[in-house]
Write a protein that binds this DNA or RNA. Structure first.
Lengths: 150, 150
DNA sequence: CTTGACCTTCCAACGATGGCAAGGGGCATT
DNA sequence: AATGCCCCTTGCCATCGTTGGAAGGTCAAG
């Protein structure tokens, strides 16, 4: 099977298949005489696994771990569960952060007349006119310091 | 004011201030004789605006629009509201996508014994063994095709 | 044999940020 | 004045996952 067919069958683009091979996520593919990569159904199976994991938001590094567990017949499901649990914590943190943003913004939007006048509470909030404290924490109600990847 | 002081006062790192200047988000700064960038309180005010907008998840491109509205005394608040509303829609879409992932994963985790045996419903789901239809939509209950940036 | 669809490799870009390195300025203490 | 230290300057690289393009080789059908 050529890479294009494997891509269609798995839902992983040919570009990404090559990339995954290059980065070591998947083993180097066999080649036909022409130099074309040659894939089996088992390979496609693995690509589908990868795609599904990516759909669930796992990073490539996590997928690497999941793949090796998948291939390990003597694995312990606790290991899989641990990875998944760690990941869900990250997901939930992102959700919380986005929700915070969304709610703040929603409040501001609700206060904005949205007409032809220039006065706008959204811009006023962004100004955060509090000339006050360079000292410590920002004025209450703010969205807070978001360091995490969102 | 030097860039470091402006950075501390605004919460935008010196790196990012230079980056914003380079990409045209902010005007090129005046320089002192020494070659150091020189910032005013008004500049810091603008940096704080930018940082606040980023905290709310606005992209740099959106911030560009917001900034020009901010500087436009004849602006219409409807324009601001439109940008904010579009952004909140994106935020909510991301949230929905992440929630979908989180819930799916939560279900799988709940089904996983998490012991020393290899059997694991999480891996089984990732396999998505349905050899069935390359035809059209994937089997029901899946997390669906997530094209959007999450 | 030609054409078009596919494959190959390599290189670059995105967005926002951090890090490192080499060289110069500014200021306070010897 | 000289030393030391911190800050500034520019520039390049890395991240992370993915997509795009260019330049060229292969395959199968017409």
């Amino acid at each position: 099977m050529n890479i294009g067919q494997a891509a269609k069958a798995s839902g992983v683009s040919a570009k990404m298949i090559r990339y995954y091979e290059q980065t070591g996520l998947i083993p180097v593919a066999d080649r036909k005489e022409s130099g074309y990569r040659d894939y089996s159904d088992a390979d496609v199976h693995r690509f589908r696994f990868i795609r599904r994991a990516r759909d669930l938001g796992f990073s490539v590094a996590e997928i690497q771990d999941l793949l090796s567990l998948w291939n390990d017949r003597s694995r312990q499901s606790a290991d899989v569960k641990r990875i998944a649990s760690a990941h869900i914590a990250v997901l939930n943190a992102r959700i919380a952060s986005l929700r915070q943003m969304s709610e703040t913004l929603q409040t501001l939007i609700a206060c904005c007349a949205g007409d032809n006048r220039p006065d706008c509470p959204i811009l006023m909030d962004l100004e955060e006119t509090s000339e006050a404290p360079p000292t410590g924490v920002r004025s209450a109600g703010g969205v807070g310091q978001l360091k995490s990847r969102v």
